[in-house]
Design a protein around this nucleic acid. Structure first.
Lengths: 123, 123
DNA sequence: AAGTTAGGCAACCAAAAGGTTGCTCATCGT
DNA sequence: ACGATGAGCAACCTTTTGGTTGCCTAACTT
């Protein structure tokens, strides 16, 4: 029983590709849900927004949206500040850039592997 | 911003960012697991491999790895072919490129939103 | 032909994820 | 001062996920 798949509480920092792929999983996991992906899309397109605004048209209750935002925050993808009785959310682009770099590394490695394979077959 | 963000737009066909973000979620979800991320990493680094080879050192049973590979295949991230009694897996880079583009679009939109906000505040 | 090896299939299980309702609390507008 | 509003908290429910074990089949090896 080695798994021990515990959530690291404060993973709110970027990660380095590609060595530290383990740090990347939470970011991808956070984006791997329709509702959350839609939330990030809206936030990035229209700028900072309150929980209520984000809940409108989300298709689920405000509480559900709130939970999703917490998940995103846990992965470092968004962060929030309280303003009066509202909580304003905004995108944190650093983890997204990190994720991008990871994908980039994967693609690069894969292309190299393909070249090697091709060379081997053709020799 | 980041210099490693250039890309010939021919590659991505799985989904379109950011309109069709719904199509992106499964890809991110597929990558959002430590074991699967490790599998993709190994596959891209060392080229095509059999289920057995991939299971070695994965920390979970062969059946678990098999399931994970099916999930990845379901998202289009990998695909497999049977060779004799072995099943050989390899990375499919198109969905990864698509995911990258989606992230790119998000970052771009976000930066634009920030500029607008800044301009508004400073006027 | 017999044994070994890679993998598919199915049942089953515990935990996590996604969602809901109901209640309370703080804050803002009037 | 008071009602409306935005959000936090908690209990609860259902489905999905990640993992296991056990057995069966196909295909190489000798």
């Amino acid at each position: 029983m080695s798994p021990a798949r515990r959530k690291s509480a404060a993973a709110a920092r970027s990660f380095r590709a590609p060595r530290d792929f383990r740090r990347g999983a939470p970011v991808f996991a956070a984006l791997g849900d329709d509702v959350r992906l839609a939330l990030v899309t809206r936030l990035s397109a229209r700028g900072p927004m309150s929980t209520m605004r984000l809940s409108e048209g989300a298709g689920v209750t405000r509480q559900a949206v709130s939970k999703h935002l917490e998940v995103l925050a846990g992965a470092g993808v968004v962060h929030s500040t309280r303003q009066g009785r509202e909580r304003i959310w905004e995108v944190d682009s650093a983890p997204l850039h990190a994720a991008q770099e990871w994908l980039d590394a994967i693609s690069r490695d894969w292309d190299r592997a393909l070249s090697r394979l091709k060379a081997f077959v053709e020799e």
